[in-house]
Structures are given as structure tokens and as C-alpha cells.
């Protein structure tokens, strides 16, 4: 069984995000970029499946500018076998990525697609669900544990107030939650070897996908700063304010 994992290049989680002066987006010039942490978890899970003999090949997919190759290389250094890079410079929205993933899945015929539940830049939480719908495959989102058996996969899902077990017929789409696993560091020798692993490049047109954005960003703003608090004198005053001013009780 082939496993297809999607890896997105995002602003590193340690970087303090700054909004551009013209409010059209956030600063990305000279900002450190890394693999989306949820995607690292997806790569790790796929590699573990391969190590356990449940997957035969792990393919890392990324869509975006040339530098996305670095993100794919990180996945290859962790243990993925080869990469697929859809090269495109414009803004990519979840639906476009889902269509690209579907096109690659049509070619590669993986048994599983594993993607992060969301990317830490736009927090959309849509791509996995959309690609499952486009392919007509089952989906197990927010995975906390994954067990692949013959022809099916059991996914323990993180849902509000607990965990839910679903059994899906393969092929299927899974999105990863934070507690699924702890991704490994790529070892230094494997980073050096990753350079020799192949990365196929495509353009969206080659795959017959129109990636033009469907949504328009109106304005991006910094969150408002916290206002100063006040001190109350008595419990009675606190209760009064919570009830009448804050309206929380």
C-alpha cells in the first residue's frame, strides 16, 4: 500500500508573526519557514506504517513555490521515499490544494492519504475533508491513533469531550491531531542521503487543475492588545459586574 502525505511550508512556529503594513497579509520576507507541525506528524505516522510493514512506499506531496522542495526534502530525510511537488507561485486555498491532491491520488492510487488537520498559518482545517469528498473516500479526521488492518483502518478521533473510534474502508483520508505521535528528528546522515531521493515536479495545468483563489482576503489585522483590568473591592461588586457588565453569569 502506498501512503501519500501532504506537507505544507509555513512560517516556523517559533517566529513572531507580523502583519504587513498595508494589511494585505503577514510578513514572509526573510522569515524562517518550516514544515507545518501537523504535517510532520502525518509524515511520522506514514514512516511508522512503512517500518511496521504496513505500507510499501511513502510519497510526500507539497504545493507552492520552489522553496517547498526544502519541505519535501525534510520529509524525505525523515524517511519518505520520494516527493511530488506542484510548483505554483500564487496564493493557494484549501480547495485548490485538495484538487491537486486528488489529481496526484488519481495517478498514484495510494491506499491512504494522511494530512495535518490544519496548517498553523491559516488554520483552515479543510483540505483533508475536501479531498475525501472529491475522491469519494472515507475520512477519519483529528486522528489520535491509527490502526491499519486488511482492507480497513481504525481511527481513534479526538472529538469534543472524548474519543471516538471509526472503522473506515480503504482507501481513506486521515487528518492528524497533535497527540497521534511525536515526530522524529531527521538524522544527519539521512538528511545527506535525502538529496538523492527523487522529487517529481508538475504544474497545476499539467494536472488539469485551476488553482485560482475562490475567496478574497479583505484585510489582515493584528489582534487587539489586551485592555488594562480593574480591581474590585468586594465579592458583591465582582458578582454584580460579572452579571451586569460582562454578562457571563
Amino acid at each position: 500500500m502506498k501512503v501519500l502525505v501532504a506537507v505544507k511550508r509555513v512560517i516556523d512556529y517559533n517566529v513572531k508573526i507580523r502583519v504587513k503594513a498595508d494589511k494585505t497579509g503577514v510578513e514572509t520576507a526573510n522569515v524562517k519557514m518550516s514544515m507545518n507541525p501537523f504535517d510532520e506528524i502525518a509524515v511520522e505516522e506514514a514512516i511508522r506504517m512503512k517500518e511496521a510493514g504496513k505500507a510499501t512506499e511513502v510519497i510526500a506531496f507539497s504545493a507552492g513555490p520552489t522553496q517547498c522542495q526544502e519541505t519535501i526534502r525534510t520529509a524525505l530525510a525523515m524517511g519518505a521515499d520520494r516527493g511530488v511537488h506542484v510548483v505554483t507561485d500564487g496564493e493557494l486555498q484549501p480547495l485548490a490544494v485538495a484538487k491537486l491532491l486528488k489529481a496526484v491520488a488519481d495517478k498514484e492510487q495510494p491506499g491512504l492519504i494522511i494530512v495535518g488537520k490544519q496548517a498553523i498559518d491559516d488554520d483552515s482545517n479543510q483540505t483533508g475533508q475536501m479531498v475525501a469528498a472529491l475522491l469519494g473516500w472515507s475520512q477519519g479526521t483529528f486522528a489520535n491513533k491509527i490502526d491499519v488492518a486488511d482492507g480497513s483502518v481504525t481511527v481513534k478521533r479526538e472529538v469534543d469531550g472524548g474519543l471516538e473510534n471509526v472503522k473506515l474502508k480503504l482507501p481513506a483520508v486521515i487528518t492528524t491531531d497533535l497527540r497521534l505521535n511525536e515526530p522524529r528528528y531527521a538524522s544527519l546522515p539521512n538528511i545527506m542521503k535525502a538529496k538523492k531521493k527523487p522529487i517529481d515536479q508538475h504544474k497545476p495545468e499539467d494536472l488539469g487543475v485551476d488553482v485560482a483563489p475562490r475567496l478574497k482576503t479583505l484585510k489582515v489585522e493584528e489582534p487587539a492588545g489586551r485592555k488594562a483590568g480593574i480591581k474590585v473591592k468586594t465579592v458583591a461588586e465582582l458578582v454584580e459586574k460579572l452579571r451586569n457588565e460582562a454578562g457571563v453569569i
Partner: peptide, 20 residues
């Protein structure tokens, strides 16, 4: 010598290991 991509990734990985 390593190509710059590989070297950057190597340095980055060690940096992350040190930090985390």
C-alpha cells in the same frame, strides 16, 4: 562540501534539537 540546502537543513535540525 555539502550543497547549501543540505547544510542549512543539517544546521537547522541540530538547532531544533538543541532548542527542543
Amino acid at each position: 562540501p555539502l550543497d547549501s540546502d543540505t547544510l542549512e537543513q543539517l544546521v537547522d535540525t541540530v538547532g531544533r534539537f538543541v532548542r527542543e
